[in-house]
């Protein structure tokens, strides 16, 4: 994993500097860009393995960059955003970003997220097609529609299973409410977030030891959900 090529898109020179230092210390090869245009050029010429994108860029927003990047690349994208910019963040995730961090963030947190994204993209390349998934003490057989917790079968309603399957497909990524609703209920239901809350609560109660402190089915308030865990 070290030696991976990272594209760092950030307009603030100070942040770029310390991120560059931290990433290089971890053994990543870093390419820096401070504008949207520059970032697209770097992305197409340097063939990075992952991108860290600040949403507030001087010549356009990061969302636009992600949308264009997604048209030809599946590389993981980690978004950096300010706390107020809730909608922008969700829009970036909807456009195809994989994860987000709110400024200010800790460098160890950023590195952990980045590693997780890189690992997942490597796994996805290697193990696509397998229908058996395991996280924590949960085993899911996507083909057989079967879920086991510590070896015991857990009964899920069809909606709950579809929801779980959608989370597994996006394993590690933050899936926005819109993405999950569209995938599970269909495009007409994108606004009914309370559906999601009720069914996610059921899933947590069936699969988590402590539903209020979940280990796998993580809530990203106002944004969406993500499935975590090895």
């Amino acid at each position: 994993m070290s030696g991976a090529r990272i594209l760092l898109v950030e307009d603030d020179a100070n942040i770029r500097r310390f991120l560059g230092v931290a990433l290089r210390d971890e053994g990543f090869e870093v390419f820096e860009a401070d504008t949207c245009k520059r970032a697209l050029i770097e992305a197409s010429t340097r063939q990075p393995d992952a991108a860290i994108v600040d949403l507030g860029l001087p010549d356009g927003d990061g969302k636009q960059f992600i949308a264009e990047l997604r048209s030809w690349s599946a590389m993981p994208v980690l978004v950096l955003s300010a706390r107020e910019r809730e909608e922008e963040k969700v829009a970036a995730l909807d456009a195809g970003a994989d994860d987000y961090l709110v400024k200010p963030f800790g460098v160890p947190e950023l590195l952990a997220r980045l590693r997780a994204l890189l690992r997942r993209s490597a796994q996805a390349d290697a193990a696509s097609g397998s229908s058996a998934v395991r996280f924590g003490d949960i085993d899911v057989d996507l083909a057989a529609h079967e879920v086991r917790r510590r070896g015991e079968v857990v009964r899920l309603t069809p909606i709950e299973f579809r929801l779980l399957a959608a989370l597994i497909r996006g394993h590690g990524r933050v899936l926005t409410h819109r993405q999950l609703l569209t995938e599970v209920w269909g495009p007409g239901h994108a606004e009914r977030t309370h559906y999601l809350r009720v069914h996610m609560a059921n899933l947590r109660h069936k699969l988590e030891d402590d539903p209020a402190q979940p280990k796998h089915l993580i809530t990203e308030l106002q944004v969406g959900y993500r499935l975590l865990g090895p």
């Binding site: 603030d12 100070n14 942040i15 991120l19 931290a22 210390d25 200010p104 963030f105 460098v107």
Partner: peptide, 18 residues
């Protein structure tokens, strides 16, 4: 306010790991 704080925290993190 946040941008400089981000830099301070991040730079301190990066320096600490070195």
């Amino acid at each position: 306010l946040r941008t400089p704080l981000t830099t301070i925290m991040g730079a301190a993190d990066a320096a600490a790991s070195r």
